[in-house]
Simulated assay, not measured.
Amino acid sequence: MQKSLAVHRVDPLIVEAWVMGWALSRRTPAPTALPIGFRVDVGLPQQKVRYVLPEFQPEVVADLASRIHTPWTFIKVCTEPRAIAKILPQTWTVQAPVFLMTAALAGNECSRGEPVLSKEYAVRVFDEGPIIRVQVEDAAGDIAASGQCALDGESCIFDQIITHESHRRRGLGSAVMTLLSDEAVARGKTQGILVATTDGLALYSAIGWTVHSPVTSAVIIPAGESAAGQ
C-alpha cells in the first residue's frame, strides 16, 4: 500500500470534484472555495462543518485548527494520520484514515454491463437528475445493498455504497458499483471518484480502482461523546 501511495501526487481538481460531488450527493449547501481548500456547511448534529484541504501544509492546518472551537467541526486533509497528530491542539481527535480513489469508468472492471445476481434479488435504479441511486432488494422487499453517485462535470462521485451484513459476500457491492458506473458512462462521465474505508479497499481495488491519496480527518468531540465514521 505504501508503494501505491508514493507514486500518486494529490491532484487538487480530483479533490475539488470529490468535495463538490459529496455535497451534491448529501444535499448540503454548495461548498465554499477557500484559499486553502473548501468549507462545507453540513449542518448535522455530529458534523456541523467540514473543511477539506487538498495539500498538507503543517502551518496552515495548525493555524486553522487553533481558530476553531465549535464541536463537531471536521478538518480533512490529504495526508496520513501521523502527520496531522503532531500539530493539532489537544481538543482535536484524529480519526483513522480513509482513501481517495479514482477509476477511468469506460472499460473498467466496474463497468461491464448488467451484473448477474441471484434470483432472490431485484434491482431498482432511481434517476434523480444529478444523482443516481441504486437499490438491491431481497425477496421480502427489504434493501440488501444500496449506493448512489453524483454527476459533476466529467466526474461521477460514488457515495454511501452499503451492503447489509446478512447479504455480504454475494457480489452485491460489486453489482451496485457496476450499475452506477454504467449509468454514469451512459451520461458521458469518464472519471469515477470515491472515498473508501480500509474495509472497502479490497472491493474497490478488485474492480479496477486505485488509491490517489489517504485522507485523514480530525474533529472536535464534546467530552463524553464519541464519533462514528464520517
Results as ranks from 00 to 15, higher is better:
R170G: 05
E137K: 08
I143C: 13
D159S: 13
G153S: 03
I161F: 00
H167Q: 07
A140R: 14
D159W: 08
S166W: 04
E137D: 13
A140D: 15
Q191D: 12
R169Q: 12
S146T: 03
T163V: 14
R168E: 06
S181C: 09
H167N: 10
I161L: 13
G153M: 06
G147D: 05
D142T: 03
G171Q: 08
V176E: 00
R168N: 04
R133E: 02
V134I: 11
E154I: 11
D159G: 03
L179S: 02
A145Y: 01
A186M: 08
S166D: 13
A144S: 11
I193A: 04
G147E: 04
V136M: 00
A140I: 04
D152N: 06
E137T: 02
C149T: 09
G192N: 05
H167R: 09
S155H: 15
V176P: 00
R169K: 13
A184L: 06
S155M: 08
G171L: 06
D159V: 09
T190D: 10
H164M: 05
V176M: 02
D182W: 12
Q160S: 13
T178E: 07
A175H: 07
I132C: 02
Q135T: 01
I162R: 04
A175D: 08
V185I: 15
E183D: 05
A144Q: 11
L151N: 01
R187I: 15
L151P: 05
E137S: 02
A139P: 06
G141E: 14
D142W: 01
Q160P: 01
L151Y: 10
R169L: 09
S155G: 03
V134W: 04
